[in-house]
Amino acid sequence: MQTQSFTQRFANPTRFMAFSGALMPWLAGLSVLVIAYALYRGFTAPPDYQQGKTIYIMYIHVPAAWLGMMGYALIAASSFGLLVFRHPLADVSAKTAAPIGAAFTLLALITGSLWGKPMWGTYWVWDARLTSVLILFFLYLGLIALRSSIEDEPLAAKLTAVLALVGVIILPFIKISVEGLDIPSLGISIPAWNTLHQPSSVFRSDGPKIHISQLVPLLISAIGFTLLFFTMHLKAMRNEILRRRVKSLRLAEVDRARASETTVAAE
């Protein structure tokens, strides 16, 4: 037992259940506390001199958009784990991360649309960054739809994993074609398809372009929502493992019944 690596021990669903069961309440409690603190800090920060109180939407919109992308990356990593290492928990992780990631992506779209109304005067504009989040949402829908339309579960798992990996390879190209790409040092400048959106103000080569009184609550909020994501993901994984156990128990019951029928017939 000592020779097993950490991932091998973690791979065992029984150990995973014990470990995650102990972790769950702490993770859930922590995410509630951090989000509450972030919202308190955010809502008591001075309103933006240009955007007024609508800036408060940012504390949900931006983390949701980040988590939408992180969720897809998590699915792609899990899919790789399934196809290459046949890790027993990889598919559980990929399957359960999809609806959660899709939900955060949808949240980013809805909050973005609500933010757009006072800023742009309309709920929806075909702005480059909103559009690429919308396409990310479509990619999530594709994963969920493919899995739900194939009855054989192990087959569905592997095919969905292939689709997730294709998606993660094409996603950067979709983002660049919609949002453009600008790397002056390499002389690369591809114009955006169409943009009204403010450029990202946190991840910039010349340092964040956002006031510190807004940046700190935003980062705390991002940590809080990330904790929430993992709380929900862990819970969903536990549910999925239990569902699979029930299913295999039922299958075994059917087999046992059939075996006893044939013995009776033989007698």
Partner: peptide, 13 residues
């Protein structure tokens, strides 16, 4: 549903 999003870059360019 699966392939239309993959065509976005080709369509745009």
């Amino acid at each position: 549903l699966l392939v239309l999003p993959l065509y976005v870059p080709t369509l745009i360019y």
